[in-house]
C-alpha cells in the first residue's frame, strides 16, 4: 500500500477513536457556559476552575456551594481496584497453574463455573447480595466490595493466566525439579517468571475492568466508599449538570489507568506474543 494512503487511513482511524477523549479533555478546561454554547467552538479561554473545584472539594454553583468527595472517590477507586486485583492474583495465579497442569476430578467444571460468574447479570446478583451484606455487616465496607469485585477480576485473571501456564513446556519445570528443587520453588522460580508477561497483562486488564465498574459500588457502597464512577453522579446537581467538572473528573480518573497501561505496555506486547517461552 502506498505510504501516503496508509498515513491518511491511520490518521482517520486515530481521529475516530481519539475524538471523544480529545473533546472531553477540551471540555475540562471550559466553563459550563462555553461548553453549552451553540454552535460549539474550538476557541475558548481555558480555565482551571473545574480542576480546582474537584481537588479542593468545593463546587460553587448558582444554587450555592456543594461539597464534593471527588478526591476521596479517586482514592476509593484506587483502593478497591488495587486490592481486588492483588487478591485475585493471590488466589487466581496458583489456581490457574493447577487448572493448567493437573487434570483432577471436576477440574474443567470448576474452571467453567468460575468463568460463569461473568455471565450473570450483575443486578440480579446484587440485590439479594445487598440484603445479605446488610445482615452480616459487610455493606458499605472495603472488604465487602473487594470480595464482590472478585466476580470481575478473578475469572479474568484465572482464564488468561491459565493459558500462559499451558504454553510453558512442563519439561522446563521438570528440568528444574530433577536439578533438586521442590515443587513450590519450581512454581515460584520457573513457572511464574515465565508467565509473568501474561500475568501482567491479565492484572492490567482486570484492573481496568475493576476501575470502570459502576453498578457494584452503586448498590453496595455509600458516599465515602464510592469509586469515581459512582461519585461522578454528584455532578448532576439541582442547578443542572456540571459538564465541565464531569469532563475534568473523567480526565483525572483516566490518568491512573493510562499511566499503568503505558508502563505495562511492553509486558502486554511481550505477553501477547510470548516468543520467549516457545523454544
Amino acid at each position: 500500500m502506498h505510504p501516503a494512503i496508509r498515513v491518511v487511513l491511520l490518521t482517520l482511524i486515530g481521529l475516530f477513536f481519539l475524538f471523544p477523549i480529545v473533546w472531553v479533555f477540551l471540555m475540562s478546561f471550559q466553563t459550563n457556559e462555553t461548553i453549552l454554547r451553540i454552535p460549539p467552538s474550538l476557541v475558548f479561554e481555558p480555565t482551571l476552575q473545574n480542576y480546582t473545584a474537584l481537588i479542593s472539594g468545593r463546587l460553587e454553583t448558582g444554587a450555592g456551594v456543594l461539597e464534593l468527595a471527588f478526591m476521596q472517590n479517586l482514592w476509593n477507586s484506587f483502593v478497591l481496584s488495587f486490592c481486588s486485583v492483588a487478591l485475585s492474583l493471590l488466589l487466581g495465579v496458583p489456581a490457574a497453574y493447577a487448572f493448567a497442569r493437573f487434570k483432577f476430578f471436576g477440574s474443567e467444571d470448576i474452571a467453567f463455573t468460575l468463568l460463569s460468574f461473568r455471565f450473570a447479570p450483575a443486578l440480579l446478583v446484587l440485590l439479594p447480595l445487598n440484603l445479605y451484606f446488610q445482615d452480616i455487616g459487610l455493606n458499605d465496607t472495603y472488604i465487602g466490595l473487594i470480595w464482590v469485585y472478585q466476580l470481575i477480576t478473578l475469572p479474568l485473571i484465572l482464564w488468561i493466566v491459565r493459558g500462559y501456564f499451558e504454553d510453558i513446556s512442563p519439561d522446563i519445570e521438570n528440568a528444574y525439579r530433577v536439578d533438586g528443587h521442590s515443587w513450590f520453588s519450581t512454581f515460584m522460580k520457573i513457572s511464574i517468571p515465565l508467565a509473568l508477561p501474561g500475568i501482567a497483562a491479565a492484572a492490567l486488564l482486570s484492573f481496568i475492568f475493576a476501575w470502570n465498574n459502576f453498578v457494584f459500588a452503586l448498590i453496595l457502597a455509600s458516599a465515602d466508599k464510592q469509586p469515581v464512577t459512582v461519585g461522578a453522579l454528584a455532578f448532576v446537581t439541582a442547578s443542572g449538570i456540571q459538564y465541565g467538572q464531569i469532563a475534568a473528573a473523567v480526565v483525572l480518573s483516566i490518568l491512573p489507568t493510562l499511566a499503568l497501561a503505558l508502563y505495562a505496555q511492553r509486558y502486554l506486547v511481550e505477553g501477547l506474543s510470548l516468543g520467549a517461552v516457545k523454544g
Binding site: I172, Y176, V178, L194, G279
Partner: peptide
C-alpha cells in the same frame, strides 16, 4: 520420592532450557 530427591540427571526431548 519427588524428582528432586532422586538425584537423577535428565536431558529432555524438548530440550527444556530456561529461556531467560
Amino acid at each position: 520420592l519427588s524428582p528432586a530427591q532422586r538425584n537423577v540427571a535428565m536431558a529432555f526431548e524438548g530440550y527444556a532450557l530456561y529461556p531467560p
